[in-house]
Structure formats: C-alpha cells, structure tokens
Write a protein that binds this DNA or RNA. Structure first.
Length: 536
RNA sequence: GCCCUCGUAGCUCAGUGGAUAGAGCACCGGCCUCCGGAGCCGGGUGCGCAGGUUCGAGUCCUGCCGAGGGCGCCA
C-alpha cells in the first residue's frame, strides 16, 4: 500500500470516530501547490461538514485531533488551515521510499499501471489523404495520437495505431487528372492539385494515359513519402487501412443492407437515406447518392463496423481536426444504428493549427509541409512543440520565432538535464566511483531541499501518466518533464554528487537519486517520442 | 440563423469546485576554484464582460462580446 492509500484509510478511520462514514477510496487527497501547506492535504472537512451538521473548520479540528492520536506512517505534523483543510507534513522517509520504488521498478516499470485493464483500444490518427505531402497540422495531431497511444499503453490499455487511407475513386481520379495534365505540360484542371510535388511525380510517371491508374500510382508514391516523413518524428502505425478496399470488397453495400434490415434506412429523391435523427443527429443523411455512389459517410460507417464488430475493439478513438466537427454526430448515429454503443466511439477534435501569415490548403498547393518543419526545427523540437499544450487550445505557430528560440526551447532544457545526468555517469566512471547496491545505500542522508524537491517531483509521475491517459492529454507528461528537469537543474547546481566536500556515503545516495531522475526523464521522453541524449 | 471549441501576464501556455492563480519566453539585475553556464538565484495584481448556482467559481449555469471551426446527394 502506497503512502497515499495509507493516508486515505487513516482519514477514513478518523472520520469514523466522529460518526462519519466515508470509505478511504472516496477520501480526496491532493498535493498542495504551496509547500507550506504540507505534503498532502485533504478537503474532507469542507465536503462533509454540511452532512455532519457542523462547520468545516470545527470538523477539520476534530478530525486532526483524532488523527494525531494515531498518526499514519511518516506523518510528522497534522494541521488545519484555510477554510478547513487538513494538512499533513511528512518526514523525508516517504520520499526515500519513492526513490527505492523508482530505482527498483526502473525504466520499464515505474509509472506503469493497469488502469486500462487491458481494454483493447484503437487510436486512429493523421489519416491524411494521400493526395499530397503531410503538412504541419497532420504532424501536430500525429504527435498527439502517437503519444496518446504510448501513454495509454503504459497505463494498461492494449493499443493499436491506425491510419485510414482515403484512396477511393473521386480523389484518385482528380489526382490522376492533375498528374496527366502536368505530364502533357499543361496546368492542372480547375479544382485539381496544384502543388509542386505533382510536377515532380509527373516527370517520373511512365504509365498509361489512364486517369485512375495514374492517380493510384501517384497516391502510392505519396503514401510512401508520408510514411517516411512521419517516421522522422518516430510515428509508426500498426495498420494502414485502405478505404478503397472496403468499397471493393462490397462491405459498404453490405453495411447499408444491414442498416436497411434493421429498419434505419429509407429512400427519397432517388437516394438512400439513414434515419440518423433517430440517433441524435440534427438531420438525416444520405448513404447512397442518386447516381448510385456511396457517400463518404456510408464508407465511414462500414469502416467503423469493421473496427467494432469485425475486429472487436472495445473502444475506438478517432483523432480529427476541428474542421471535421460536422461529421461526428452522423458517424455516431451510424455506429448506434449498427447496434454499437456510441459511447465506445470517442472523437477527439483538435483545434486547428495555423501558421503566421499562411493559409494551408492541399489543393491550392499553399501549405507548409511537415518535412519542411522538421528540416527547420529538427525532429525533437517539432515533436515537443506540438505536445506543449492541450489540443483543445488553438495554436498559431510562428516558425521563425520557434527557430529563433530554438536554443532556449523547452526541449533543450529537458534534454540538457538528461545529458547532465549522463555526464555525471561518465565522470563517476573516470574517477572510479562505483554505485553500491540499493540496499547498502543510506537514503536518510538525502535531506537537502533540492533533493527532496526532486523526489517530490518523481513521486508525481505515476499520477501524471494515469491522468494523461484517462484525460487523453499527453501534454501533461510534457509539463511534468519540464518540471522534473527544473528540479534536477536546481539539485545539480546546489548538490554536488562528487564534490570535494561530499562524503562517499552521500555520493552514493546522490548517485542513486540521479539514477532515479534519469529513469523518470527517460520514461517521460519516451512517452513523448523525444530523444534522451547522452551528450548534446 | 443554428451548433461546437476556445478567450488566463507583452508572447506561448498550465491550473480533478478549494488556500496568496502559476511556468517558460522576452526584459532587468546577480552567480563559474569542484560533476557541462543550453544552467542557477532574484525581480509580476493578469482570469474577455455581466449576472447566477454555494461555505467557496479561472473552473459549473445563462446572456453578451471576440477568435476559430461546422451546418452538402464533397471527401
């Protein structure tokens, strides 16, 4: 049982002596923002006072008194403060226990959990149309989706990463027309693809003057480039799922038939409609156009039928740009019509990324490619920039500013901490200082405020990873990594590991602390997809 | 017109209904005899506006203002 659970149980027991029944699992505990408020704090007196028929301050006082008579482990003082908080100040022992835990669990085990209970979740992200290079926005949500997958994986979900490849007729034809036009030395048709890349592809194309075949050929080349680009920022997929394959296999028609059998479909004006209003949509939607073609929605429903009913994912998370907001209700309705609980489909809409003075559009050819951004900033900066804040936050990226600031960038701040740790290791090796086994190190020597601050930070990582997973918010890991790096730099400055006046036993304890910091940083950087460099 | 998301320091952003709202950047001062100065220490009244809910609101509700996005037999 960790210290947090022990405190919860103690509070629960203390409340019981006052005639208030509240299970330990429901006791709210938090780490106060200010150190003067102790190491742990509970607001139960505030939340329970009303039911108990007393005022919060009085209840807090009574609870504190009850707890003082049988203080939990490591607790040194119990105080009441503010409107009725009960604050616990702990001795450094609990932090030494954390240190032991971090080093024992190591890079693979620390902050890993079974929170997801092995639930099979598919995360679909990027899914950019293979009609042109991926742009900055794709990379932004790509980093998000990939790090979310890493975070949820560490928190006990069984995660699969998927890219939906939109390689169906209409777009392939348009791409093919643009390609063939370029090969003939003409401008692409109205509404075609104007980008430079089409010109390059056209000069390499040696196939027949067939629009569809030219389009398919081009999209394959483009998709290969997309894979290469995403791999530069360490994004890889378990599955590249072809939309055309669903159509060609007849599963779209099949799905529409299934919906018809379930009575959710009707015909009007020569088209086939889904009665999506029965499932919360604002209007009914067309599944088959009057010209006989299936709509995008029909394909998307068939695709999600495959996700849920054929492949059997417990949960599906679609990461989309906010510009896809309009299709969410229809897709959820379609899923519900199939008999799948729509709550199992989670759509994360990311606010759009804009660039200073740029308007991105693939068709017009005006966009900043992800490759360009990586060339400018490097893979680590590119990746971390997009994981600096919530995807609910609309951002305007200023590439020039990012370059100017690159030496002051948070990435370097964090990586520098890692490099310093590695450097300590090298110096220790040079001086022949070897690390003792864990059970021979006297951790009680670690009492410097900087040391304890670093340990407090390390203690947070399991909670941060769990929160990042359940809230689908990998940027929380970024915040933690920055905070840990800050704690480490402070420690590094004030606490020499192998300084002249540092006794060997303290050196040993600090070496272990440094190793724990390294483990924490390595874990967080790996979750973020950023390198942990030995040197810079 | 209707719907969704977002408005926090000069800038980029944190902030499970809790205590004196925090970081980084930029700006101004300090700090190298020892493990990397890409570092450390100090310098700060800003929650778009107005109501409401309650012991307590940056956080929840309503309205307004502002920004972005959506409302196709496009994908």
């Amino acid at each position: 049982m960790g210290i947090q659970e022990e405190l919860r149980e103690a509070v629960s027991a203390g409340l019981a002596t006052l005639g208030i029944e509240l299970p330990g699992s429901e006791v709210h505990l938090e780490r106060p923002q200010r150190l003067e408020h102790g190491d742990w704090s509970s607001n139960v007196a505030l939340s329970q006072a009303k039911q108990a028929g007393t005022n919060p301050r009085q209840l807090a006082e009574e609870l504190a008194a009850a707890l003082r008579s049988a203080p939990p482990r490591f607790v040194e003082t119990i105080e009441t403060a503010g409107p009725g908080f009960v604050n616990f100040r702990l001795g450094p022992g609990w932090l030494h226990e954390i240190l032991r835990e971090v080093v024992t669990a190591g890079e693979e085990g620390y902050a890993a959990s079974d929170l997801g209970g092995g639930e099979r979740v598919q995360i679909e992200f990027v899914s950019a149309n293979p009609t042109g290079p991926v742009h900055v926005g794709n990379g932004w949500f790509g980093s998000y989706g990939d790090s979310l997958a890493r975070v949820m994986g560490r928190a006990g979900w069984q995660v699969s990463r998927e890219y939906y490849v939109n390689d169906t007729g209409g777009q392939m034809r348009s791409l093919g027309e643009s390609l063939l036009a370029r090969r003939r030395g003409e401008a692409p048709p109205e509404g075609g693809y104007q980008g430079e890349y089409v010109l390059e592809l056209a000069s390499a194309y040696e196939g027949p003057e067939d629009v569809l075949e030219a389009g398919r050929w081009a999209s394959e080349r483009i998709l290969a480039d997309i894979k290469t680009t995403l791999a530069r920022i360490d994004i890889h997929f378990d599955e590249w799922y072809s939309q055309a394959s669903i159509e060609e296999s007849g599963r779209v028609a099949d799905t529409i038939e299934l919906l018809r059998q379930k009575g959710h479909v009707y015909e009007e004006d020569g088209a086939v409609w889904l009665r999506s209003t029965d499932f919360g949509d604002s209007r009914d939607r067309v599944l088959v156009k009057s010209n006989g073609d299936a709509t995008y929605l029909a394909g998307d429903i068939a695709y999600h039928r495959d996700k849920f009913l054929t492949r059997g994912f417990d949960r599906v998370i679609d990461v989309l740009g906010a510009d896809h907001h309009g299709q969410v209700a229809s897709l959820k309705a379609g899923v519900a019509a199939l008999g799948v609980d729509p709550a199992r489909l989670e759509v994360r809409l990311g606010q759009l990324v804009s660039l200073v003075g740029e308007r991105m559009s693939k068709r017009s050819g005006h966009f900043v490619s992800l490759d360009f951004l990586i060339d400018e900033l490097g893979p680590d900066v590119t990746r971390l920039m997009s994981l600096l804040s919530s995807i609910d936050q609309a951002t305007t990226l200023d590439i020039d500013a990012a370059k100017r600031e690159s030496m002051e960038n948070p990435v370097y701040y964090v990586q520098y901490a890692y490099a310093r740790i590695a450097s300590i290791g090298r110096v220790a090796a040079e001086r022949g200082v070897e690390r003792c086994p864990l059970d021979q190190v006297d951790l009680t020597l670690l009492v410097h405020p900087r040391e304890l601050d670093l340990l407090r930070q390390l203690a947070e990582l399991p909670r941060v990873v769990a929160e990042a997973a359940t809230e689908r918010a990998p940027y929380k890991v970024t915040n933690w990594a920055r905070a840990l790096a800050g704690s480490f730099h402070g420690f590094y400055h004030d606490c020499y590991v192998m300084g002249e006046d540092v006794p060997p036993r303290l050196t040993q304890a600090r070496l272990l602390l440094v190793e724990a910091a390294r483990i924490g940083l390595a874990i967080s950087l790996r979750l973020l997809g950023v390198h942990a460099p030995e040197e810079m």
